[in-house]
């Protein structure tokens, strides 16, 4: 005991206790609940073990897998578009010599708004009757569109909001990457006969790949847990047309009060995030290896 009190473990103890309270314990409890039919309205169900019944049900649950698939699709499209826009913005800002700092700050404005407010703002832009966009269309004699009702348009509208608010994450990370690229290889490539596109493709892009994958990792985690903007704009509706994983999970858990089932959904969804993170980290390592870092 005396040895323990003098050892390094005792110094780590406060951290271990805090981590246990805020991470491990909640994780364990939520994992436990996913093996019970726990309903918030009937506390006694917390102690009824039903094994894998929640998981078995989910595997046959059409709504869940549609939301799952939609989240993957949403993530793929949003990330790729954000990459394209972010890279474009970063390249342009990297080129200018005047007022670069001001523009860099301006660029980050969307990130400074709460996602809830972003959701509200876009909800009003896309509103059927009083929305900015439909009013604009009417001015030009174009018939207004049901932006937040039509399946395709509603999903696109949410994506527009998501991209608007988060493209600057890509832009700022890629800009940092661009500014860190050594000048010499680029000049060497110019002398070696490359035009601008060839310089970009052969030199700039390989140097930028690690930054792209870091941005992808961060944003994939963000988008996979997308909730606030969707909840504000459509609430997953109408008729589950824009249902993503987390709108479904929160409704199952808090509205339908089926916490056990909701936690089972969460555990399956987490694999999605882990898979994406793993994939992008693997790509990141590869990109770094190509550049002979480490």
């Amino acid at each position: 005991m005396k040895k323990f009190l003098n050892g390094p473990w005792v110094l780590l103890l406060p951290t271990v206790i805090v981590l246990a309270c805020v991470v491990f314990l909640p994780l364990l409890i939520s994992l436990w609940t996913s093996f019970t039919p726990f309903k918030l309205t009937r506390p006694d169900t917390l102690y009824k073990f039903v094994g894998f019944r929640n998981y078995e049900r989910l595997f046959g649950n059409y709504d869940f897998w549609v939301a799952f698939g939609r989240t993957v699709l949403f993530l793929t499209i949003a990330l790729n578009l954000e990459l394209v826009f972010g890279l474009g913005i970063a390249l342009l800002i990297n080129k200018i010599t005047y007022a670069q700092k001001t523009l860099r700050t301006l660029m980050m404005f969307p990130m400074m708004f709460s996602p809830i407010l972003v959701g509200f703002q876009w909800k009003y832009i896309f509103n059927d009757n009083i929305g900015l966009l439909n009013n604009f269309l009417r001015e030009f004699g174009i018939s207004p569109k049901p932006w937040l009702v039509d399946t395709f348009l509603a999903n696109m509208s949410i994506m527009a909001a998501e991209i608007w608010s988060s493209t600057s994450v890509f832009a700022i990370l890629l800009l940092a990457g661009l500014m860190g690229i050594p000048k010499d290889p680029i000049e060497a490539a110019k002398v070696d006969g490359c035009n601008s596109w060839q310089v970009f493709k052969n030199i700039t892009l390989p140097f930028l790949m690690p930054f792209i994958f870091i941005a992808m990792t961060i944003r994939s985690l963000d988008v996979a847990r997308a909730y606030d903007i969707v909840q504000m704009m459509t609430g997953g509706g109408p008729a589950k047309r824009t249902e993503l994983l987390w709108t479904l999970i929160s409704r199952t858990g808090y509205v339908d009060a089926k916490m056990g089932l909701a936690n089972a959904m969460s555990y399956i969804s987490i694999f999605l995030s882990i898979a994406f993170t793993f994939f992008f980290f693997y790509k990141l390592m590869e990109a770094r290896k190509i550049l002979s870092y480490d």
Partner: peptide
């Protein structure tokens, strides 16, 4: 170039 400026990849 002074720093060789080789393409590291």
């Amino acid at each position: 170039f002074q720093n060789y400026a080789l393409y590291p990849h």
